[in-house]
Simulated assay, not measured.
Amino acid sequence: MVGFDKTQFLQQGFHVTERGQHLIVTTPQVFASGDPARFFVRRDFDNFIFDDYGSTHNALTLSLPNPGKATEVMSSMLDKLDSRIEFEHFTLIRPTKSNQIGVAFREFLDLYAMLTTYQPKSSHHQESMAILENIYRFLKERYNDVIPKVKYKGLSGLNHKFSFQADNTLVDFAHPNGQSTGALLRKIQDVKLVYNDFKFNIILDDSNQRKFDSESRILSSVANIRPYSLMLAS
Rank of each mutant, 00 (worst) to 15 (best):
41 V>Q: 04
136 Y>D: 12
141 E>G: 11
102 G>H: 09
185 L>K: 06
59 A>V: 00
1 M>R: 09
5 D>K: 05
88 E>M: 07
111 L>I: 00
139 L>D: 02
39 F>V: 04
161 K>I: 12
175 H>K: 13
62 L>I: 06
134 N>M: 10
202 I>D: 00
179 Q>W: 13
21 Q>E: 14
202 I>N: 03
225 I>G: 00
1 M>Q: 10
103 V>R: 15
152 Y>Q: 07
181 T>G: 05
55 S>L: 13
101 I>G: 02
146 V>W: 04
108 F>G: 01
161 K>L: 14
185 L>T: 01
101 I>M: 15
228 Y>K: 00
195 Y>W: 07
53 Y>T: 02
128 S>K: 15
72 E>S: 13
137 R>Y: 09
60 L>K: 03
56 T>M: 02
94 R>V: 02
16 V>Q: 04
4 F>K: 06
30 V>K: 11
73 V>G: 03
226 R>P: 06
11 Q>I: 09
7 T>E: 11
151 K>M: 14
137 R>N: 11
109 L>I: 09
9 F>H: 08
141 E>S: 14
193 L>M: 14
152 Y>C: 09
206 D>I: 03
78 L>T: 00
233 A>F: 05
69 K>G: 10
72 E>L: 10
175 H>M: 10
204 L>V: 03
102 G>V: 11
51 D>E: 11
135 I>C: 04
37 A>W: 01
96 T>A: 15
224 N>S: 13
158 L>K: 13
77 M>G: 07
176 P>H: 06
31 F>P: 05
184 L>A: 03
2 V>F: 12
103 V>G: 09
50 F>R: 03
117 T>Y: 01
27 T>F: 10
167 D>H: 03
153 K>M: 15
160 H>T: 10
226 R>G: 06
214 S>F: 10
122 S>L: 04
144 N>L: 09
192 K>L: 09
152 Y>W: 08
93 I>G: 12
180 S>A: 15
103 V>L: 15
35 D>C: 10
218 I>S: 02
